[in-house]
């Protein structure tokens, strides 16, 4: 599954403006920060995927290798069901999170999908402590009405291990 953009100095979309894509990314971030996870889940297309590769294998084989998160629609449904429950003990009380999104680049795929790459910092605070995750996030988006549907979200953590960033990854990036 190819989702990388060409390593060109200048990439942009002929069909979409950066502003409308940013509007969408900020909306997604707002849903996640507000823990409106069911609405977030519904941003995904029926065949959508959400993937976080293992920290030692960021460019691994998506079909064969072990990731940290590898959710299809059914996987997303389960993850959100769990995180909405008060029995998700590590998220009870829930983390406070705040996402900062920057360095947004876009390009058109041949199949009509929009490629997006951005840098994301997520501050995550729990009672025992605060940490932050930094990620290189790629999307493939499809136009849906006046907004987008997520066909693919791939969040590559910029950490060698999870050991100094809270130990685990119990939130959505």
């Amino acid at each position: 599954m190819s989702f990388r953009y060409a390593e060109e100095k200048k990439v942009s979309s002929e069909k979409f403006t950066r502003a409308e894509v940013e509007d969408f990314l900020y909306y997604e971030a707002q849903l996640l920060d507000a823990w409106k996870l069911e609405e977030w889940r519904d941003l995904f297309e029926e065949d959508g995927h959400y993937i976080v590769p293992s920290t030692d294998n960021p460019d691994g084989d998506l079909a064969m290798d072990l990731a940290l998160i590898d959710d299809d629609h059914e996987g997303l449904r389960g993850r959100v069901q769990r995180l909405m429950s008060t029995y998700a003990h590590i998220e009870n009380p829930r983390s406070r999170t705040r996402r900062i999104i920057s360095n947004v680049r876009l390009w058109d795929h041949d199949n009509g999908e929009l490629g997006v790459r951005c840098s994301v910092v997520v501050y995550r605070s729990r009672v025992p402590g605060t940490t932050s995750y930094v990620a290189d996030v790629h999307y493939r988006l499809r136009k849906q009405g006046d907004s987008f549907g997520i066909a693919f979200k791939h969040a590559m953590l910029d950490h060698h291990t999870l050991r100094d960033v809270g130990g685990v990854l119990s939130i959505i990036l």
Partner: peptide, 26 residues
């Protein structure tokens, strides 16, 4: 088969699985 395995593994296991993070918390 690998797809079945990875999904089954991650449904429970790992630091972003649906179960292991709660063991951490306990």
């Amino acid at each position: 088969s690998r797809r079945v395995r990875n999904e089954s593994f991650l449904s429970f296991l790992g630091p972003a699985g649906l179960a292991t993070p709660d063991d951490n918390e306990a």
